[in-house]
Design a protein around this nucleic acid. Sequence first.
DNA 1: AATTTATCCAACCGCCCTTCC
DNA 2: GGGAAGGGCGGTTGGATAAAT
Length: 322
Amino acid sequence: MGHRCCSKQKIKRGLWSPEEDDKLINHITAYGHGCWSSVAKLAGLQRCGKSCRLRWINYLRPDLKRGSFTEQEERTIIDVHRILGNRWAQIAKHLPGRTDNEVKNFWNSCIKKKLIAQGLDPNTHNLLSSNKTNILKNNINASNSFRQETPAFTMDTSSKTAASDLSTLLPCINIPEYDHNNTIQYTSGSDQYQNSVVVSTQHIISQSDLSALEFANCSSMESSNVMSSSGFGTLNESFMWDVGGIGLPIEQQKTGQEADEIVMAPQRQEQNINELNSSNHLQNVAEDTFDSTSFDFDFVDSALLPSGVYCNVNSMDQLAWD
DNA sequence: AATTTATCCAACCGCCCTTCC
DNA sequence: GGGAAGGGCGGTTGGATAAAT
């Protein structure tokens, strides 16, 4: 069954030949596309309007970015997908030069598998049920022995690369030198990083000690604030990502505009950091005390992950980006 | 070298929405 | 107001290619 718009016409289907591409490019360059159904006729193509539109948008448009996706693009896709779900056109708007089709294909062929391998459900971005069970079990044990070390995410700084990245990053994000047994083990200055930077998942299982680590910006913590693996939201008591309301009734989910604002946050933060670097503010910032109201986890996560910093919830598979 | 299997991705399908008459 | 046509979008298919056997 063909398209309604062309079911009565004799049209060609399948792959486009270079000659057809030339015809379409020449026509649109000269006259614009206007009404797509007339483009085919005017350009001398035996194609339907939809096919021409698709070919132009997905392949022939001059502003298209070719080549493989960057790590930053991949992260953006995951972040926006967590908020918007399979709204590929909306997601593609955050990636200049990429099409919805390209994003969709990349998701299905690459990201999806990666998330599954990390024990995450690609649809909900939550832990797969088997992993969830294990973690719940582990956290029950953890709660029995109060303050038992159960890292929510462990920043592995054992490698030189990661350590050097952290050495530039951590002063910027202004993490305090907490030391309550279950705290961030970080001290400023070169060569003083511990092998791992640990934040306890006690906050996942209990909200009794939230004051110890006032994560994130919210003053009233309705859920334990454990940063998402790639940028946005928090992990609630049910191990569900609480960010855009995926899984909630549609009216509670983020709108495209709200998602835009969220997605731009780490970019703005990164820009701020660049400004800080260039204006020699780094040292001053490092010496400041921790201010939870200005602490932006979106940035932390988006900046840490490419440096080989892993999210680790006890027995949970490392949320690593290869 | 030949065949099978897996992967990627361009293109199609069909539904929904908007616009026009 | 209602039907037709066109555009937009997400899901799916199938051909081309690469990798494995």
